[in-house]
């Protein structure tokens, strides 16, 4: 049976939508591994659980090793993803992302030393969350939209933690644990693993 004008119209619209969706998903391809981000979230939750008895003290002996473990998990995740997709890991956009996030992390490191020395460790959760959020949002400019939103959520949690240091540990668990896990699952599903 020949197709009617209406059928052609709906097929043409579907084809246009398909082209648009394919172009979007191809250009929003990210080197950031969703599964690696989920692993970072698990490290975050584990650290929060170990730090729980310390309350607002924010023990560096727990959080600093956790940060390195998280960095290693993210690195391995990205490496595995790059290998699987057969792309070089150190691409232009990855380099730009590194330039977006590293300065914020360095500032976070310096502030951690100073705040601890001044006896203000209750401000560490807010400082970490907001600086990490600022870094991720900046890095996200060169990657998928999900990363930019993840950065802004961290920034929001950080600001909240600065105003309510008594919620610091819970917000650390929500941010470094929960937000990483949710964003990681989303990235893994929508952006190639």
């Amino acid at each position: 049976m020949p197709m009617s004008t209406h059928d052609h119209h709906s097929e043409a619209s579907k084809n246009l939508a398909f082209i648009r969706e394919t172009m979007e998903s191809a250009s929003s391809f990210t080197a950031v591994s969703g599964l690696g981000t989920v692993a970072v979230g698990c490290v975050g939750l584990l650290a929060a659980w170990i730090a729980w008895p310390y309350g607002t003290e924010t023990p560096l002996g727990v959080w600093i090793p956790a940060a390195f473990l998280a960095l290693a998990s993210a690195g391995i995740g990205n490496w595995v993803k790059a290998k699987r997709l057969d792309v070089p890991m150190w691409t232009g956009s990855f380099r730009k992302m590194a330039w977006g996030i590293v300065p914020a992390l360095l500032a976070g490191g310096a502030l951690t030393l100073v705040l601890t020395r001044e006896g203000a460790s209750h401000l560490l959760p807010g400082t970490w969350l907001s600086l990490y959020g600022a870094g991720v949002a900046a890095a996200g400019t060169f990657s998928v939209r999900a990363l930019r939103w993840m950065g802004l959520v961290f920034l929001g949690l950080g600001v909240l933690a600065l105003f309510r240091p008594d919620w610091g540990l819970v917000l650390l668990a929500v941010g470094f644990g929960g937000v990483h896990i949710v964003s990681g699952i989303f990235i893994a599903r929508s952006h190639g693993g």
């Binding site: 082209i19 172009m23 191809a26 250009s27 391809f29 699987r84 057969d86 792309v87 190639g192 693993g193």
Partner: peptide, 16 residues
């Protein structure tokens, strides 16, 4: 369409 959005894509990227 996928190639129109990128300078180039690897086999693995296209597949994904």
């Amino acid at each position: 369409s996928a190639l129109a959005a990128n300078e180039s894509l690897t086999f693995g990227e296209l597949k994904a």
